[in-house]
């Protein structure tokens, strides 16, 4: 999760993500286009690497062409961690109800928390 916050803590990288949100499957050249005044190709490549490491973009190779797609799943994980907590409680309640109705016993061991 550190990598995601670090990647998002930069206006240029957020702009690149906005660009990919509007249009998926862009090549490096396509991504550079709107930033031609403000960023060198080298700088864009550096940003893309950081975004890729944070899993905020997905690369799909098509022959020798590298296409970039926005991958908002890690951002959703952030939302899940802090915003959807109450929804999770509802899910747990539903699961408990299911066990009660089916007469099965849910395991009572404490839940392990994932590292990410």
């Amino acid at each position: 999760m550190d990598a995601v916050f670090k990647a998002l803590a930069d206006e240029s990288r957020r702009s690149i993500l906005d660009h990919l949100y509007n249009q998926g499957g862009l090549t490096l050249g396509d991504i550079c286009e709107p930033f031609v005044e403000s960023m060198s190709r080298q700088a864009v490549m550096k940003h893309l690497k950081i975004l890729e490491e944070a899993q905020l973009i997905t690369i799909v190779w098509s022959g020798r062409e590298k296409h970039h797609y926005l991958n908002p799943v890690p951002i959703h994980a952030i939302q899940d961690r802090w915003i959807r907590k109450f929804e999770k409680q509802r899910m747990d309640a539903l699961s408990a109800l299911k066990h009660a109705l089916e007469g099965t016993t849910p395991k009572t061991k404490g839940k392990k928390h994932g590292s990410s």
Binding site: P72, V73, I75, H76, A77, Q79, D80, S95, H99, T104, P106, K107, K109, G110, K111, K112, H113, G114, S116
Partner: peptide, 20 residues
């Protein structure tokens, strides 16, 4: 839809190790 589904799936599989 998909980001929500995938994020939910990940947390269910990872934190649900002790769930049925």
């Amino acid at each position: 839809g998909w980001p929500a589904v995938l994020s939910g799936l990940k947390s269910l599989l990872e934190t649900g190790k002790t769930l049925q």
